[in-house]
Design a protein around this nucleic acid. Sequence first.
DNA 1: GCGCTTTAGTAACACGTGTTACCAGTTTAG
DNA 2: CTAAACTGGTAACACGTGTTACTAAAGCGC
Lengths: 342, 342
Amino acid sequence: MLKKRTTGQDVADLANVSRTTVSLVLNDVKGANIPLSTREKVRDAAKKLNYIPNATAQALATQRAQAIGLVMTRSPHHIASDNFLPQILGGLLGVVREHKFRLLIETVEEERQERAYLELAQAKHIDGMILLTPRIDDKGFQKLEEVGVPAVLMGKLPDSNLYSVDVDNCSAARQAIEQLIKMGHSKIACIANAPASYSASPERVLGYQNALAEAGIPFNKKLLRYADFSPQSGFDSMQSLLSSGEEFSAVFVASDNVAMGAKAALREAGLSIPDDISMIGFDDIPWAAYADPPLTTVRLPAQEMASEACLLLLELMKGNTPEKRNLVLDTELIVRKSCRKQ
Amino acid sequence: MLKKRTTGQDVADLANVSRTTVSLVLNDVKGANIPLSTREKVRDAAKKLNYIPNATAQALATQRAQAIGLVMTRSPHHIASDNFLPQILGGLLGVVREHKFRLLIETVEEERQERAYLELAQAKHIDGMILLTPRIDDKGFQKLEEVGVPAVLMGKLPDSNLYSVDVDNCSAARQAIEQLIKMGHSKIACIANAPASYSASPERVLGYQNALAEAGIPFNKKLLRYADFSPQSGFDSMQSLLSSGEEFSAVFVASDNVAMGAKAALREAGLSIPDDISMIGFDDIPWAAYADPPLTTVRLPAQEMASEACLLLLELMKGNTPEKRNLVLDTELIVRKSCRKQ
DNA sequence: GCGCTTTAGTAACACGTGTTACCAGTTTAG
DNA sequence: CTAAACTGGTAACACGTGTTACTAAAGCGC
């Protein structure tokens, strides 16, 4: 019942050559001079038997899995509510597929990061990894550098020498705030996208603070909240802001996904955008363009970041060591209709 | 510079035993009687050398990759705008991680489906696969059944004997329409989630038609549009409906993601929900709860579907053949504020 | 003391491929 | 005519693990 797999040996038998020859022909190995007649014999046999090489055996023999891993330090629950992930997957898959690689999704529990990364890399199921939303206090990265596993960070860590692809979160945020200030706002609240332990979060907050400082507006700690990726956390943060009694005419929400919730909280409080409160988001997820009103936001070139990270990783895996360790892509402030002059 | 991997042999040498013993100890093989003293010697050596078994070699030896594949017949571009994917990934990752499996993401180009599935399975990089958003005209599935690769469909195909996990799209849609009818609507438009070649699409349309029929409302083909997963396609579909001149007081949009665009089109036309038009969506993506007004929609238990599909697949890979081939999970109509009595 | 069972462990093979070193036969150069 | 070079191909090893069949020694009953 269970048909046996056809192996390279079967092809060799049918073509009356050795298994070596089969391998040489099918892999188009240079320097091996094998006449056309033999090549065709082998190719015909392979086609006839529907030969598909065993990727595992290839991986073992060549010492490369032809696969890269997308590694996240997030719980499955958080992943489920991340509107941002599809764009990254799309960007990765495009490049990965083009280069005949495979993509593995890996999650790492927070408790055992140190060992986890090494296991991933040394188990050799993947040749390199792309690290998503790293936490500043992640202990595993050092080990990663020591061992020399090809890895590219999406984001940036202060004390790390890993290759990375990122945007200038700080200046992107500052640009957004400058826009608000230019429109006459001075009481500007801020909801960070994630806890401060995720690197992008404090950077965006810093941009917010820098813009205020530059305009001579004192930073009011009571207007700052930290959300946790989810819309619900945005909802809660906004409610907290509203009930704090602090006045503000605009809010910078450092994640569109979080902004979804913040927006709902405003509505529930009877406040309208942009008439009562102006809002600027971050990321430009598809929703932003279709929101009511369409959300002014900082476009983060997610798909391009993912592609670039992937290309960089492929170079590293080839053994090359590109000059620029830290690629910084441009953001763009997409002005829609969620802000008005004060 | 490049430190050599530590293999099982290294552990064996350090512990002064054979490689076989190392394997027996570390895998806790039953029936092998090895005294505690030796076991500890081996474990100590392994720990000292930081031994991490080579997963590829294990896969080759055991003939199982300990990995499953999530296979999509979609272009990377479409994937990037799919708000639905994170929930599925979340559901899969939870189960996959718990069972010490890995998850591979694969996309299959439409042109060469037939061979693609086989390559995936026979290359043995994965032990089984979960098939997402299959198209009715997909030729590859038959082969898949013939070869007997463990596979679970998310969705349902009429002529297929594959195991599947799905919801009753037809009755879920009917339930939604019945709600609208109950509220007094009789001119009800419908925007399908995807082209009719994706199985869920015609099923939902059928539910729509059935509900109409049951209430004695004639089906008006001019009130039906087919979108294409994306918000933009929803926007276009709604504009097409509005400019058709046909009257309608409610619309059933068979995908929240598409509804996002449809909603924007209504707004642009100066129509408000629910005052001018009532709307019911499908899927209950996170956005639905935070929309303005919160969207009444059919909750599709995406995460649970993914988990169940994964569990089913794991059973199949163990060699078991569960009784129920087609698992149907319950949907629930989540009533929010996007509908009003006519 | 003799056969039998248990204990502790290993040698050897399997998994399916990539790759190097080599060989036999033929052509070419001098 | 002989040595060198090329042609066409293969045997043999490597990759790192799981697993079966087997051995050698020790314990045990009688």
